[in-house]
Design a protein around this nucleic acid. Structure first.
Lengths: 143, 143
DNA sequence: TTTTCTGGTTACCATGGGGTAACTATGCCA
DNA sequence: TGGCATAGTTACCCCATGGTAACCAGAAAA
């Protein structure tokens, strides 16, 4: 057993900057939308096509939320049929770089992570088996 | 209206590395747990106290998931009362650095983001008001 | 005349994610 | 004798998230 200094850790309060920030960064779909928005201005339908599986409802919702937070900009052209263009703001660009880093991390490590996960799941079964065998042995010795 | 090259954007498929990675990074509470785990080994109760508002159920769940993915390590001491220590693995440490970057971004920008958000919400009301005034004016001119 | 094209919005509905609280084992301390 | 402490686990339950699909305007093309 390790002796440990019991110094007080700062509590991560629900209202601290870190949590407020991570909350909006990690929101459903939002990092993907930032990645999709990427380098250039995109139209709604382009984004919708690019992010496979997102519904129009969610895409609208996420884009609006990013816009509220001044992370992207929405430009409406008053034409028919409608045309709306989205692009990252300077603030959004600063965030984009960090998300790119996460993307790169994923590209580099996700397969290792998944391999480890598979191992872990198999290992669990092995341990269970070992426990069962230990019980069987106890039972054998007792009888 | 901007003329645009219609070159095909790569589709972000649901099964691509980026999405598989971002999915586990952005999972509920997981980034907070990584931050809380931070520099040193921590006990379950320490983490639970440090991350205000997380339930034991969720904390267990997230720690297990991180462990499955080989991002943290769990050491059980067979004593009573129980004692369990968690720490980041080398793989977890690589991820921690990126999450620290997100934390720093939050610390630096979240207040600006929230200020912009407030402005946006007020601006919306203003625009609504303008629209109403425009309608009133039309009505006045017509009558 | 009808369909199409875009960028939404809305109502409806089902799923499940996550909170709460009770329960566990067992040794130590009062 | 009776709490108390730790690290969970489990049953129960409910709210909210998010999907689906229908609907919209209005011009242009077929």
């Amino acid at each position: 057993m390790v002796t440990r200094k019991q110094h007080e850790e700062p509590i991560i309060r629900p209202d601290c900057r870190t949590r407020r920030g991570l909350e909006l960064i990690a929101a459903q779909w939002s990092m993907l939308v930032v990645v999709a928005l990427g380098e250039e201005t995109k139209r709604f339908s382009q984004l919708h096509a690019q992010i496979a599986g997102i519904s129009k409802k969610m895409l609208t919702q996420v884009l609006r939320e990013l816009e509220r937070n001044s992370l992207d900009k929405r430009v409406v052209y008053l034409v028919i049929p409608p045309m709306v263009e989205y692009s990252l703001t300077p603030l959004g660009l600063t965030l984009r770089e960090l998300i790119y880093a996460l993307r790169d991390w994923s590209e580099r490590y996700i397969e290792e992570v998944e391999r480890r996960r598979t191992e872990y799941d198999q290992q669990d079964k092995t341990l269970l088996q070992e426990q069962i065998m230990a019980l069987v042995q106890q039972w054998t010795e007792a009888s």
